[in-house]
């Protein structure tokens, strides 16, 4: 999250100008140190590319080959020939639908098992068994049910989004401080109102932790799902470009997927701060 700590970065720059030792401040800043990390990776890539020059492009070669993708993200040159922006939007659409459906199911289920011990004993073993299963295993089952790639991909994301959100919501509900509920009891607040005005807002930080983990995994999984199902999407793009031996495009995809994932997490963290009025953790 460092590169998004905008205030700190701005402050470092600002102080740099003010004290007129910009260079020194810059080398200590939160921009410079992450840059060293990325530079290291690129150097490593470059070295490997020099040894495996028949397949691997060097960073400048890859940049040159990807220039069209980078400069024209939203081109349409035929039914299957779309710019990266469109592919990204198609993948994001699947993730968003699956993730939202997952959240709609997972948050109430989390509340149920967090508040009711019988429900917990019924559902916890199911969750513990299903949670470690790679979500991709659900793909054949989904294809058997829906007989079509698009709903199957969304279904897999839906399953992916369930577990962390359920578990963290339940944890949040169990951890609502007793004092908050006692205040509500002393005020003679009806039970349903305690749920909405005290328990839900009190467990929101936990719910958001669950949502952020779920969305992170969903974004990992969609790429793999699209490699298997084909169609339009950033995952299939990776597989397709590899089949055409365009490793340069795969490198581009690595950065695009990574940055998109980071933005998704950042967006949820921002939403959390907005909704809970407290700074997001981690």
């Amino acid at each position: 999250m460092n590169i998004f700590s905008k205030n700190k970065v701005n402050k470092a720059f600002y102080m740099g100008f003010k004290k007129n030792n910009f260079l020194e401040k810059f080398t200590n800043s939160q921009v410079f140190l992450p840059l060293i990390g990325f530079a290291g990776i690129i150097v490593l890539w470059w070295i490997i590319a020099l040894f495996r020059s028949e397949m691997m492009p060097t960073p400048p070669e890859a940049l040159a080959k990807n220039l069209d993708f980078i400069l024209h993200p939203f081109y349409r040159r035929g039914p299957g020939d779309l710019g990266l922006g469109w592919l990204l939007l198609a993948s994001l659409r699947r993730v968003c639908i699956g993730f939202l459906l997952g959240a709609i199911v997972a948050i109430p289920v989390g509340f149920l098992i967090g508040m009711n011990n019988t429900a917990w004993q019924i559902l916890n073993p199911v969750i513990q068994v299903f949670k470690p299963v790679s979500p991709l295993v659900w793909l054949p089952i989904a294809l058997a049910i829906f007989n079509s790639a698009e709903p199957s991909a969304i279904f897999v994301i839906f399953i992916t989004s369930l577990w962390s959100t359920i578990i963290n919501t339940a944890e949040g509900v169990k951890n609502v401080p007793a004092e908050y509920l006692e205040v509500a009891q002393v005020l003679e607040m009806p039970r349903w109102k305690q749920l909405v005005t005290v328990m839900l807002p009190a467990s929101l930080p936990y719910i958001f932790t669950g949502l952020r983990i779920s969305l992170g995994i969903a974004w990992l999984v969609i790429v793999a799902v699209e490699m298997l199902t084909g169609g339009i999407g950033i995952g299939f793009f990776v597989w397709d470009e590899w089949n055409r031996l365009n490793v340069s495009s795969v490198f581009l995809a690595v950065f695009v997927i990574g940055i998109t994932g980071l933005i998704l997490d950042y967006a949820l963290a921002k939403l959390q701060t907005l909704v809970t009025h407290r700074p997001a953790r981690g």
């Binding site: 401080p177 004092e179 908050y180 006692e182 205040v183 009891q185 002393v186 003679e188 807002p201 009025h277």
Partner: peptide, 17 residues
């Protein structure tokens, strides 16, 4: 519990949101 006996808690018990 009842509001005719409102309590001030040691840990404040303010709702942080």
């Amino acid at each position: 519990p009842g509001a005719d006996r409102m309590m001030v808690f040691q840990g404040y018990a303010l709702l942080p949101w």
